[in-house]
């Protein structure tokens, strides 16, 4: 995987260079992009802004672009049970109404984007978490969640007294499986005897487990009671339940996506060991920047450890004593010495 990533990165860099040349030779097409106000359309998956998960993270990237570049934005959100055509229509309406670029948040938009992108060859699209849409005007913003998870898994194993760890997934989708796989592999890398207790809160397609703090709390409490002392979650809004349970049980928790030490309730902050960072916000912001600067590139943009798209947080200072070890592991992953699995 790391090798593939680096190849992809190299390819991307090459394409980037070509694109850069192209933009220099054809200033007319891109100069307008940077001088006129950019109109950015963002289509969320179910939940939208306020889901305390990747939608929120995407929103943060958009907000930053708005603040720094003064771009005009338009956001819309998927509703539950909507057919494929509604997603298509959402993207289409944004495109028809002059929005460019347009960002689709979540792999659910894959099929609909594959339909709509060819209809608007001049509009630049990005899709988060999906690599299946391959069009000349689509950038696929994908993340190596397993790499970041590997690091927090290692951190957990280093900090654990009991050698028993926990993982809570919001939904039994392959995407969350990547978190689990990396985490378990990271823990075993440090302590081959480490045990990881795995619980998923829900099943697709509805996946209520991404917004069910009570379920997160129950699952976590059970893990702490059966001897686990550190629990990692990839369960979006349900994570707050984990933090409460960790605080109550005197255990530790690991956050996900953003630096949750900064966003969680103050009372439970001290229970947060670290967070696995998945910088959807960075990806969204970078994408908007690339369009603004006329640097749009189609195809996969992999946000891995090397690209700084995933990582771990240090707020709270609880992992300060092991950052050297973690950074060493990170370098080994980047160098391809450690291969991180993507499936549990």
């Amino acid at each position: 995987m790391p090798r593939v990533t680096s190849i992809a990165t190299a390819l991307a860099a090459a394409v980037l260079a070509v694109a850069g040349c192209a933009s220099e030779s054809e200033p007319a097409s891109t100069a307008t992009g940077s001088e006129e106000t950019l109109k950015v359309g963002l289509a969320y998956d179910i939940g939208g802004r306020g889901d305390q998960s990747f939608n929120d993270s995407a929103a943060a990237g958009l907000d930053r672009a708005k603040a720094e570049y003064g771009v005009e934005t338009n956001e819309s959100v998927a509703s539950e049970g909507e057919p494929e055509s509604a997603k298509e229509e959402r993207l289409r309406l944004l495109a028809q109404n002059g929005f460019d670029p347009i960002i689709a948040v979540g792999f659910a938009y894959g099929p609909s984007l594959a339909q709509v992108a060819p209809e608007f060859p001049d509009v630049r699209f990005a899709i988060v978490d999906d690599a299946s849409v391959m069009e000349d005007n689509v950038a696929n913003l994908i993340f190596a969640e397993e790499e970041g998870s590997f690091l927090v898994g290692a951190a957990a194993a280093l900090k654990s007294q009991s050698g028993q760890l926990g993982f809570i997934g919001g939904c039994t989708v392959p995407l969350i499986g990547k978190f689990e796989a990396g985490y378990a592999a990271g823990a075993k890398h440090i302590n081959p005897d480490a045990e990881v207790d795995v619980r998923y809160l829900s099943d697709p397609p509805a996946c209520p487990g991404f917004s069910d703090p009570a379920a997160g709390n129950t699952a976590a409490t059970g893990m702490y009671e059966s001897g686990a002392d550190i629990v990692y979650h990839a369960a979006g809004g349900s994570g707050s339940g984990l933090f409460e349970a960790a605080d109550a049980a005197g255990g530790l928790a690991i956050g996900v996506d953003s630096d949750q030490y900064l966003t969680a309730d103050e009372a439970v902050r001290d229970a947060i060991l670290t967070s696995m960072l998945k910088r959807v916000d960075v990806a969204v912001f970078d994408f908007i920047t690339s369009v603004r600067d006329g640097d749009f590139t189609a195809g996969e943009v992999v946000y891995d450890l090397e690209a700084g798209g995933v990582g771990y947080s240090t707020s709270g200072g609880q992992v300060d004593d092991i950052t050297d070890q973690l950074d060493e592991i990170a370098q080994k992953i980047i160098d391809g010495e450690i291969k991180v699995p993507t499936e549990p």
Partner: peptide, 14 residues
Amino acid sequence: GASYTYSQTFPAGL
């Protein structure tokens, strides 16, 4: 008529 596959994003709640 549209998806041709039952995937994880098949409409729920109908």
